[in-house]
Amino acid sequence: MRQRLELALPAVTSLVAVLLFLVTAMMPVSASAAGPCHDGEIVLDGGIESIRDLGGCIWYLEDPGQELTLDEVRALESGAFTRHEGGVLNFGYTESAYWVRLDLRSAGNPDQNGWILELALPLVDEVTLFMVRDGDLVDQRQAGYEDNWVERDLAVPNPTFRLSLAPDSLSHVYLRVVNTNTFRLPISLWHPDSYIEKVSVDELVRGILLGSVLAILAYNLFVAVSVRERSNIYYVLYLVFAAIFIFTEQVHGIQLLDSRPALFDKQFLHFQIILTWFWGLLMARSLLETRERSADLDQVIRLCLYSVVATFVLSLFLPYHVAMEWIVVGSVLLSL
Results as ranks from 00 to 15, higher is better:
Leu61Gln: 09
Tyr320Phe: 15
Leu316Met: 15
Leu117Ala: 04
Val225Gln: 11
Gln272Gly: 10
Leu102Met: 08
Ser226Ala: 10
Thr182Pro: 02
Pro28Lys: 06
Leu175Trp: 02
Thr311Tyr: 12
Val251Asp: 03
Gln255Phe: 05
Pro28Asn: 03
Val213Met: 12
Ala11Ser: 13
Asp296Thr: 12
Ala284Arg: 09
Glu197Cys: 05
Tyr219Phe: 15
Leu189Phe: 06
Val127Ala: 12
Gln272Asn: 09
Gly330Asp: 09
Glu289Gln: 15
Ala143Asp: 15
Leu137Lys: 11
Gly47Asn: 07
Glu62Asp: 10
Asn158Asp: 11
Arg2Lys: 11
Gly56Ala: 07
Val16Gly: 05
Leu163Val: 01
Leu221Ser: 11
Asp136Leu: 09
Gln272Pro: 00
Ala17Phe: 14
Val100Lys: 02
Glu62Val: 05
Glu77Pro: 08
Cys37Ser: 12
Leu154Gly: 02
Glu249Gln: 08
Val177Tyr: 03
Val173Ile: 15
Pro192Trp: 08
Ala31Ile: 01
His191Lys: 15
His252Leu: 12
Pro157Trp: 00
Val227Arg: 15
His321Asn: 13
Ala218Asn: 02
Glu151Arg: 10
Ile254Arg: 13
Ile327Thr: 15
Leu175Gln: 06
Arg302Pro: 00
Cys57Thr: 03
Phe161Gln: 04
Met283Asn: 11
Arg206Lys: 14
Ala215Tyr: 03
Pro36Asp: 05
His191Ile: 01
Trp115Ser: 02
Phe317Lys: 01
Lys198Pro: 00
Ser294His: 11
Ala75Lys: 11
Thr180Ala: 15
Gly35Arg: 03
Ala107Lys: 05
Trp190Lys: 01
His172Val: 03
Trp277Ile: 05
Leu287Ile: 15
Phe268Ser: 11
Ile51Glu: 14
Leu334Ala: 07
Arg228Pro: 02
Trp115Ile: 01
Leu61Trp: 10
Gln267Met: 03
Phe161Gly: 03
Glu229Gln: 14
Trp59Asp: 13
Ser307Leu: 14
Phe247His: 03
Cys37Leu: 10
Glu203Tyr: 10
Pro167Ile: 10
Tyr93Lys: 07
Gly65Met: 07
Leu318Phe: 13
Ala143Asn: 13
Ala310Arg: 01
Val199Ser: 02
Ser212Asn: 08
Val18Tyr: 08
Pro159Lys: 00
Asn90Ile: 00
Arg74Met: 15
Met1Cys: 02
Leu68Arg: 06
Glu118Val: 06
Val329Pro: 00
Met131Tyr: 02
Arg260Gln: 08
Glu229Ala: 12
Glu41Ser: 09
Arg101Val: 02
Phe271Asp: 05
His270Pro: 04
Leu61Asn: 11
Ile327His: 13
Val127Ser: 09
Thr311His: 13
Met324Val: 03
Val332Pro: 04
Ser14Ala: 07
Val227Ser: 11
Ile273Arg: 09
Phe21Glu: 03
His270Arg: 05
Ala25His: 01
Val205Pro: 00
Leu275Ser: 09
Leu163Phe: 04
Phe312Lys: 01
Arg2Glu: 10
Phe268Asn: 11
Ala8Cys: 10
Ser96Lys: 09
Leu263Thr: 05
Phe278Pro: 07
Leu336Asp: 02
Asp71Val: 10
Leu123Asp: 10
